[in-house]
Simulated scan of single mutants.
Amino acid sequence: MKDIKNAEVDDPFKGGATFSLQHRLIRMAWGLAWCLLASWTPPQANGVRVWLLRLFGAKIHPTARVYGSAKIWYPANLEMDAYASLGPGVICYSMDRVVIGHHVVVSQRAHLCTGTHDIKHPSFQLFTKPIVIEDNAWVCAEAFVGPGVRVGEGAVLAARAAAFQELAPWTVYRGNPAEPIKARPRFEREVA
């Protein structure tokens, strides 16, 4: 992400900022707008939430659903296809792109995290990698998807599992780190 500052110049341990002032101001406006206009809304007000996310740069299909209690860090990095869902309490730490395919379910309190730090760098330099969740996949309750992970088409990441590498299509994973446990039957869904 181009807005990440060099930790050697702006050392976060000495109070330096990690992101540019412009980026921080946009995120501040976003947080205020979500809090006032969307976070408290009932599930039936999905259209308002989608409108607000689009206003801040998200690319969201009109049939996608985002619950009011979901936390989206930076909407301009979020893409959601038809009938995709970010459930209650989902944390979408979108420092980098988060691409969610059609009919994807990201269940309650799951965590999509695109940022991490270089532990070898003396100032703990932040870096990011995108997350891609392909069509018909399911990220179950309280699961964690780390930076750079691609969740294959139809894959399932079980409740509280943690994915740090690519998940193969039509495969069920569980554990920390996530390990494949069985195949999932393939199917197709129409996208209207």
Rank of each mutant, 00 (worst) to 15 (best):
M1E: 08
M1F: 03
I4Q: 07
N6S: 10
A7D: 03
D10M: 06
D11R: 00
F13S: 08
K14V: 05
A17Q: 13
S20W: 03
H23E: 14
R24P: 04
M28K: 13
A29H: 08
G31V: 04
L32S: 12
A33C: 11
W34Y: 01
W34N: 06
L37M: 14
A38H: 09
A38D: 05
S39V: 01
W40T: 09
T41V: 02
P42F: 07
P43G: 09
P43M: 10
A45G: 01
N46A: 06
G47N: 15
G47R: 14
G47T: 10
R49Y: 13
V50A: 11
V50N: 10
W51D: 12
L52F: 09
R54Y: 08
L55G: 08
F56R: 05
G57W: 04
A58W: 03
A58P: 01
I60Q: 03
H61Q: 06
A64D: 03
Y67E: 12
G68F: 03
S69W: 02
Y74W: 14
A76L: 06
N77A: 11
D81V: 00
A82R: 05
A84I: 02
G89V: 02
I91Q: 09
Y93K: 00
S94W: 04
D96V: 00
D96E: 01
D96Q: 00
V99Y: 08
H103S: 03
V106E: 06
R109K: 10
H111V: 14
L112Y: 13
C113A: 14
T114M: 10
T116K: 01
T116S: 07
D118L: 01
K120Q: 14
K120E: 15
K120W: 04
P122E: 08
P122W: 05
F124W: 13
F124T: 01
Q125N: 09
F127G: 10
T128V: 14
I131W: 02
I131A: 10
I131S: 09
E134R: 15
A137V: 11
W138A: 03
C140R: 06
A141S: 14
A141L: 06
E142Q: 15
A143D: 08
F144M: 12
F144V: 12
V145H: 05
P147F: 05
G148D: 06
V149C: 02
V151E: 06
V151F: 07
G152Y: 05
A161G: 11
A161N: 01
A161F: 03
A162V: 11
A163G: 07
F164L: 09
P169K: 00
V172L: 15
V172W: 10
G175F: 08
G175S: 07
N176Q: 01
A178S: 04
E179D: 08
I181P: 00
K182I: 06
P185S: 11
P185G: 05
F187V: 05
F187D: 06
F187T: 07
F187I: 02
E188G: 06
E190L: 08
A192D: 14
